[in-house]
Design a protein around this nucleic acid. Sequence first.
RNA 1: GUGGGCGUAGCUCAGUUGGUUAGAGCGCCAGGUUGUGGCCCUGGAGGCCGUGGGUUCAAAUCCCAUCGCUCACCCCA
Length: 428
Amino acid sequence: MINAPRGTNDILLPQVTLWQELERRLRELCRAYGYSELRTPIFESTELFARGVGEGTDIVDKEMYNFTDRGGRKITLRPEGTAPVVRAFLEHKLHSTLPSRLYYLGPMFRYERPQAGRMRQFHQFGCELFGAEGPFADVEIIDLAWTTYRSLGIEDVQIKINSLGCETCRGAFREELKKRLEPKLGELCNNCQTRHARNPLRILDCKSPQCQNALGQLPQILDYLCPDCREHFSGVQKGLSALEIPVLVDPNLVRGFDYYNRTVFEVVAEGLGAQDAIGGGGRYNKLVEELGGPSVPAVGFAAGLERTLLVLEQYGIKLTRDDAPFLYLAPLGEEALAVAFKIGTQLRHRGVPTYLPLEERSLKAQMKVANRQAARWTLILGDEELEKRQAVLRKMDDGTQTEIPLEGIVELIEDLFQKEGSSGRCKA
RNA sequence: GUGGGCGUAGCUCAGUUGGUUAGAGCGCCAGGUUGUGGCCCUGGAGGCCGUGGGUUCAAAUCCCAUCGCUCACCCCA
């Protein structure tokens, strides 16, 4: 037997309706915010991520699904959504009309050991806002992130924000930090020893108790922000508080991508095992340029959908989606099966969700299936009815049934469906 | 990459100090109702006990290896 590869899974019936409903709501939300969908390929040139996400990040160094195609091209299954969106944004010259609001929704791939809330193929929903430098853009994105969870009924999320400054103030801070860490190097964990050389900022959010102890009082980037960055960050905070979006300033929040500058944020929630982030994002003013485009400021965020569903489950929030048949057809006998098959097919042509049996079965067995399928109505069609050119229409809720003529039956049931519409019933 | 836990029916899991035809609940199928679901009752189908090797008169049970799942470290969504 061949199983799905490690860290991947099949999404089937009970779960798949949750996914459909989740996706439907996210798209609806994007419409409200004026974001339009951008679908990019699932694989890209390896170079895109090497340059976009940055060499030296965990993602690029050890988590990418890389392969060489038959033409010798170096290809990578996308580990995140922002770099591909920027690539497409440039390829289609979307910077000619700014601001540009884009969203994506789909699978991402990272080669890691799976655990609770972490898969090798997982799904992200993300939004990117191009062409606005002022704090309102950051506020819009953070509000959108916040509203994403709120609109799903998750009240209990916390947003942590920080500012990483720009290349000038961050550079100065990095040097200062390195200098201050120098004497304590020996006390830090192995990881942080290498970070010291490559990316000292990441030492700030190291969770190892060894480092937490050794670090003690370190300078904070917020104290090193240049006047512009300081003003921008305070603008973001003012905007958020005007919208009454509660955020926690976390000076140690760094995040794992190289492309962020100024605002970074993370949405955290309980119930994800050892993980706590269900979404995150920030500003990336240099990325478009680094990928060969003009200077276009941008902000974005991404939400992990598996984790979002985990949190929904934790809170007992059920996203329901009607997937039950409106009509269950229960023919008795060969002749009735043929007649039912035709009626059922005509109803399907008219968009009425119809369960159609393909073989003869006892009425009892058919009723059981109708019940299990949560059908709203069952149409019973046997010899007796055929004789009289009639059928029995049974309402499954209360078991009441009426005889209706075969003549015009398709129209009659279609009318019934138009009136009652979908009922929010769920098979699973 | 490292460590812990677990692999028995479609699903959730029992299975005693190794001992005869490996069990339950749910689900599925059929019957109780010669044409009526949900509740109830009866019966049935369905298992290389993850795989390979070893110990033993005898292995689901003990040992080794291997694969898979899972949780955690690292990092992240």
